[in-house]
Amino acid sequence: TYTWNTKEEAKQAFKELLKEKRVPSNASWEQAMKMIINDPRYSALAKLSEKKQAFNAYKVQTE
């Protein structure tokens, strides 16, 4: 089980997950979700809006 003390740690864990699963920077949210949804870190960020925000930040960083 994973635990995160801060929102920032949770966001980092979520981005690490995207990186580890090699989600391409041109992937849509739907494509990315299919690649990461079974990992416990997918739940790091509770709100869908937070997940999408972190995903978009990840995409910008990896382009």
Rank of each mutant, 00 (worst) to 15 (best):
L48A: 07
M35S: 05
F55L: 11
A10M: 06
E8S: 07
A32N: 01
K52G: 03
S43A: 12
Y42N: 02
N56V: 09
S25W: 11
A44Y: 03
S43L: 14
K47L: 13
A54D: 02
N38W: 08
Q61Y: 10
M35Q: 06
K15E: 15
V23Q: 00
A13K: 05
E63S: 13
S49H: 12
Q31E: 11
A32P: 00
K7V: 13
P40E: 07
K19M: 14
Q31A: 09
P24V: 02
E30W: 08
L18Y: 00
E8F: 08
E9F: 03
L45F: 05
R22F: 07
N5I: 12
T62G: 10
A46I: 08
Q61R: 09
A46F: 07
A27D: 02
F14H: 00
K34I: 11
E9S: 04
Q31S: 08
E30S: 11
N5T: 11
E20F: 06
K19L: 14
A46C: 10
N26S: 10
Y2E: 15
N56E: 11
Y42W: 13
P24D: 05
T6M: 05
L17K: 00
M35D: 05
K47Q: 12
K34G: 11
F14G: 00
K47M: 12
N5V: 13
T3D: 14
A44D: 02
Y2I: 15
E9V: 03
Q53F: 07
K51S: 03
A57R: 10
Y58V: 02
I36S: 01
A57L: 11
K47H: 11
K59C: 13
K51Y: 03
M33A: 10
A54H: 04
I37D: 09
S28G: 08
A13Q: 05
K11D: 14
R22A: 09
L17E: 00
F55T: 04
N38V: 07
W29E: 00
N38D: 12
F14C: 01
Y2G: 15
L18Q: 01
M35N: 04
A54V: 08
E16K: 05
N26R: 07
Y42F: 10
Y2A: 13
N56I: 11
D39P: 00
E63V: 11
V60N: 14
K11Q: 15
A54Y: 05
E16H: 07
L18V: 02
N5M: 10
A13I: 06
E63T: 11
E50W: 05
Q53H: 10
T62L: 13
A46L: 09
S25Y: 11
L18N: 00
Q12F: 07
S49V: 10
Q53K: 14
E50F: 03
L17G: 01
L45A: 02
S25F: 13
R22S: 09
E63D: 12
N56W: 15
A13E: 04
T3L: 12
L18W: 01
S49G: 07
K21C: 09
K51W: 05
Q12G: 10
Y58C: 05
N5Y: 13
N38R: 09
K52T: 05
T3R: 05
T62F: 14
P40C: 10
A32I: 05
E8V: 06
T6W: 03
V60L: 10
E8G: 08
K34H: 11
L18G: 00
Q61T: 12
N5P: 09
N38G: 11
A44P: 01
T62S: 14
T1N: 15
L48P: 06
E16F: 06
T1A: 15
E50P: 01
R22N: 11
A32D: 00
I36Y: 01
E16I: 05
E63I: 14
T62E: 13
E20N: 05
S28L: 07
N26T: 12
L17C: 09
N56A: 12
E50H: 05
W4Y: 12
F55C: 05
Q53T: 11
E16G: 10
V60M: 12
A10E: 08
S43C: 14
M33R: 12
A46P: 14
K21H: 07
W29G: 00
S43H: 13
A44C: 05
N38E: 10
Q61H: 07
K11F: 15
K59Q: 10
K19F: 15
S49F: 04
R41N: 02
P24K: 04
A44K: 02
Y58S: 03
M33K: 14
W29Y: 07
M33L: 11
S25P: 12
D39K: 00
N56L: 13
E16L: 07
K59Y: 05
T62P: 10
Q12T: 11
T6A: 02
A57Y: 10
K21G: 03
Q53R: 11
Y2S: 12
K11Y: 15
N38P: 06
Q31M: 07
T3H: 14
K19V: 15
L48V: 13
Y42C: 02
S28F: 04
T1R: 15
R41M: 03
T3F: 13
E50A: 05
E8Q: 08
S49L: 04
A13V: 10
Y58D: 04
K59G: 05
P40I: 10
K7T: 07
K34N: 14
T6P: 02
L48D: 08
A57Q: 13
A10Q: 08
F55N: 02
Q12V: 09
A13G: 03
P24I: 02
K34C: 13
V23L: 05
P24M: 04
T62R: 08
A27W: 09
M35V: 05
K51G: 02
M35L: 12
K34D: 10
V60G: 08
E8I: 05
K34V: 13
A57N: 11
Q53C: 13
K21V: 07
E30R: 09
L48C: 12
Y58F: 08
P40R: 06
T6V: 03
K59T: 08
E8C: 13
L45V: 05
K7L: 12
W29V: 02
I36M: 04
K19R: 12
E9K: 02
A10R: 14
R22H: 12
L17A: 12
E20W: 04
A27P: 01
S25N: 11
E9Q: 05
K52W: 06
E16D: 13
I36D: 00
S28A: 06
N38M: 11
K15F: 15
L45K: 00
M35G: 04
K15I: 14
I37A: 11
R41V: 03
K7S: 06
F14I: 01
K11C: 15
M35H: 06
I36V: 05
N26P: 02
N5F: 13
K34Q: 13
M35K: 07
N5L: 14
K34Y: 12
A46D: 12
Q31N: 09
T6Y: 03
K34E: 13
I37L: 10
T62K: 09
A44L: 03
S28N: 12
